[in-house]
Computed example of a mutant assay.
Amino acid sequence: MPKVRIGSVSAICVFMAVIFCLVASALSFGQGALPPVPRTKQGHVKRVLVIGQTKGFEHDSISAAMVAVYNMGQESGLWDATLRTDTELLTKKHLDRNAKSLNDFDLIVFTSTTGELDMDADQKLDMLSFVHDDGKGFVGIHAALDTNYNWPEYGEMIGGWFDQHPWMTFNAPIINEAPDFPAVSHFPKAFVKYDEIYQPKAWSRDKVNVLLSLDPGRLDYNNNPRVHRTDHDFAVAWSKMYGKGRVFYSTLGHTEEAWQDPDIRKMYFEAIKWALGMTDGSTSSHPRPATSATP
Rank of each mutant, 00 (worst) to 15 (best):
M16V: 09
A99I: 07
D280Y: 07
D215Y: 01
W151K: 13
D220E: 09
V208L: 01
I62C: 04
H228R: 09
R218D: 12
P166C: 06
V131H: 04
L128D: 07
A17N: 14
N150Q: 14
T169A: 08
A121T: 12
F191I: 02
G52L: 07
Q164I: 06
F191Y: 14
K244W: 14
P38K: 12
W274A: 00
P166M: 01
N209T: 01
P152N: 06
A293G: 08
K41H: 09
D134Q: 13
R5F: 10
E196L: 10
A26W: 12
S204H: 14
W167D: 07
G159M: 02
P216V: 04
D233I: 15
F20H: 08
E156T: 13
D263H: 10
F248E: 01
Q42C: 09
D122M: 09
G277N: 08
D146Y: 06
Q74M: 14
A237F: 03
L117V: 09
A68M: 15
Q123G: 11
A64D: 11
S101T: 15
I197V: 12
Y154I: 07
Y268F: 10
K41V: 09
S25E: 14
S61L: 05
T283H: 02
V139N: 05
I19T: 07
K244E: 03
N209W: 00
C13F: 12
P36Y: 13
V14K: 02
D120E: 08
E75N: 04
V4G: 03
Y149T: 10
F138R: 03
T251W: 02
R229I: 01
R229W: 07
I51Y: 03
D215G: 08
K266P: 02
N171P: 04
K244H: 10
A64M: 07
P182K: 01
H44C: 02
P166H: 05
M241H: 11
A275N: 09
P179C: 02
N176S: 03
P225R: 13
D206G: 04
I12N: 06
V109K: 07
N98F: 12
A81L: 10
H132F: 05
K244T: 00
S282A: 08
V50H: 06
D133P: 02
R97K: 06
W259S: 00
P173I: 00
G30E: 10
V67S: 11
L211M: 05
F29H: 13
Y198K: 00
A17F: 07
Q53T: 07
M168T: 14
I141M: 14
A172W: 00
H254L: 12
S28A: 11
F191N: 01
T82G: 06
G243H: 04
Y242H: 10
T113K: 13
V131E: 01
E75T: 07
A271T: 11
Y249H: 13
S292N: 09
K207C: 04
F57C: 00
L89D: 05
S292H: 11
G160H: 11
P36S: 04
Q42M: 07
M267P: 02
F20S: 09
H228K: 11
I197K: 15
T40H: 15
E116Q: 12
A24G: 12
F130L: 14
E256I: 12
D96V: 06
H232P: 05
K201R: 15
